[in-house]
Nucleic acid binder design. Sequence first.
DNA 1: TCGATATTTTAATAGTTATCGAATCATTGG
DNA 2: CCAATGATTCGATAACTATTAAAATATCGA
Lengths: 112, 112
Amino acid sequence: MQADRVIRALSALAQEHRLAAFRLLVQAGEQGVAAGVLAEKLQVPPSSMSFHLAQLGNAGLVTQRRESRSIIYSADYAAMNGLMGYLTENCCGGMSCSQDTECFPSPQRKSA
Amino acid sequence: MQADRVIRALSALAQEHRLAAFRLLVQAGEQGVAAGVLAEKLQVPPSSMSFHLAQLGNAGLVTQRRESRSIIYSADYAAMNGLMGYLTENCCGGMSCSQDTECFPSPQRKSA
DNA sequence: TCGATATTTTAATAGTTATCGAATCATTGG
DNA sequence: CCAATGATTCGATAACTATTAAAATATCGA
């Protein structure tokens, strides 16, 4: 992952509502969460939520799909993985802190 | 680490010059790097560098000490560790991605 | 097609962050 | 004490980010 992308990802997460939204999306797993549900859970007006989700999307941290009237957002685990990898390698000392510890084996599903 | 602190740390790293500076500091290890040296390496005027270093300091990611006329900055590995821990636990899926992989055993020194 | 629902886009505004020259402060050597 | 060096603070300005109401878009059910 190149520095430019890393900065976009960090900027995206560096905001109260977006960090909270991303956490919810990570919890939700592959099934994702509708924009409106996120807005309600975070107590943010829909247009604000939309703005924040667009930022996360632009940073490549979430994907979206339409499902009937709703637009469902999901965390992009690979992107988060890439971010963690960069931080681990570049910001955690010469000795990369985890050589064999990928954050995710792959597009994991909701545990269980 | 609480969300508020996490956001400050992410904001601090989400900037070209600061991310670059922090990387250099991580590389440098405990001995740290003087403000002026960072400014020169990053091709940023001293007052700008000072501004960015203050942001990193405010986020708790670096510490500073005076050494004669210079002010030497060092990466705070524990803080970075804390950030990584938060991200791993909250943004990397239910299954915390590394239970036994601390980013650092402790205030590590320059490898070797 | 119409009305309702879910979301995004637009546009205006307020607030925050970045930039950098000039002034200031701290330390040192002479 | 003074001049030089290394760094920060101040102040002005430009650029970006967040917020939200209102308008527009898309989908659905009847």
